[in-house]
């Protein structure tokens, strides 16, 4: 059964056009021109219990807007949404107690107090029983390794430490659904890895349903069996990560290490040269012809090593974003 169901969701922002300058401001007092920003434009998907879904798309694609609708912060322009059987923007406490929205830049901690105080406040807000609170907190503190900074003023924590605390504050009520908007933004590679491990184990341990947005493909590769790609408010792909490769990658990459001098002109006939720095070359060739071309290269040149690879997922997605028309 679907935990989250979204059907034909549209969210158009009404933005009023303001002409620059004072006279523009005065004019706009009397006569406002509005235009629509189609942030989410007819998007449908379903998410089942325990799924960990990656939302990707370029800046302004509509990812955050979708998460805001799902958490009840925004009314949609039209469309149907339910989560755990609730309509998010009714803002029913019964629903609110079961999800959490975590935004990379959001700040819900009391800046001047130790983080533990904010945890206690959230415990009360979400009406978490004492025993459960203690257990959850202990678990989270251990997982994220923050035992010795619990009593430090939040303003004195580093960004990474603060993000961990934000995360704990968001999870004190053991939500069944997590909306994570760029949870690894601004973290160093070690912290990113830790955050990913944490998200993975949270998903497993609680069978939690998680939607995650990120601009880091590593997040998506490591965490999400399923990805949803949106661009300019429209859903352009929904499926397993491998399927993106099958669907969009019409080419493979042949990497060759030559034993003898080679000119790039000699290679151009095989396919598109992605990289060439003697002795190594990377050539992009049609998928179906890859074995044949590799054989010919081996025949024509002195070769020390050859490798046929799928293209990088990053590259495919970049191509999908930059408007190679796949529809």
């Amino acid at each position: 059964m679907a935990v989250i169901e979204v059907k034909n969701l549209k969210k158009y922002y009404k933005v009023h056009q303001k002409e620059p300058g004072l006279s523009g401001s005065i004019k706009s007092l009397f006569h406002r021109k509005y235009y629509d920003v189609k942030a989410v434009d007819n998007v449908s998907f379903e998410i089942g219990e325990g799924e960990l879904v990656g939302f990707i798309g370029p800046n302004g694609a509509g990812k955050t807007t979708t998460l805001k609708v799902l958490s009840g912060l925004l009314y949609p322009t039209s469309g149907f949404v339910t989560a755990l059987g609730y309509t998010p923007w009714d803002r029913k406490p019964a629903y609110q107690k079961q999800f959490s929205l975590v935004m990379g830049q959001k700040n819900q901690l009391w800046w001047d107090l130790p983080a533990i105080e904010s945890f206690i406040l959230n415990k009360e807000i979400y009406e978490v029983p004492d025993a459960q609170y203690k257990k959850t907190l202990d678990g989270l503190v251990e997982l994220l390794d923050v035992k010795d900074i619990l009593k430090v003023q939040v303003r004195k924590l580093s960004l990474g430490q603060r993000m961990k605390m934000e995360l704990i504050a968001s999870l004190i009520h053991s939500p069944k659904i997590l909306f994570l908007d760029e949870p690894t933004i601004g973290l160093d590679v070690v912290m990113q890895k830790k955050m990913r491990d944490f998200i993975k184990s949270y998903n497993k341990k609680y069978n939690a349903t998680i939607i995650l947005t990120s601009h880091y493909m590593d997040d998506v590769k490591e965490l999400c069996q399923r990805v949803v790609i949106i661009d300019k408010g429209k859903l352009i792909f929904d499926g397993a990560l491998d399927e993106i490769i099958k669907k969009y990658a019409d080419h493979k990459l042949i990497t060759v290490v030559f034993g003898d001098e080679v000119k790039s002109q000699q290679l151009a006939k095989f396919g598109q040269i992605k990289e060439f720095e003697y002795p190594k070359a990377v050539i992009s060739v049609k998928r179906s012809e890859a074995p044949k071309i590799a054989a010919r290269i081996l025949e024509d040149f002195t070769v020390e090593d050859v490798n046929i690879e799928e293209p990088q997922i990053e590259d495919i997605i970049r191509e999908v974003f930059t408007g190679k028309d796949f529809a």
């Binding site: 805001k68 958490s71 009840g72 912060l73 803002r91 406490p93 609110q96 107690k97 999800f99 959490s100 929205l101 959001k106 700040n107 819900q108 959230n122 807000i125 979400y126 009406e127």
Partner: peptide, 11 residues
Amino acid sequence: GTLNNFLVKPI
């Protein structure tokens, strides 16, 4: 937009 922090919570 800090109000958002509250609108998602039962308070």
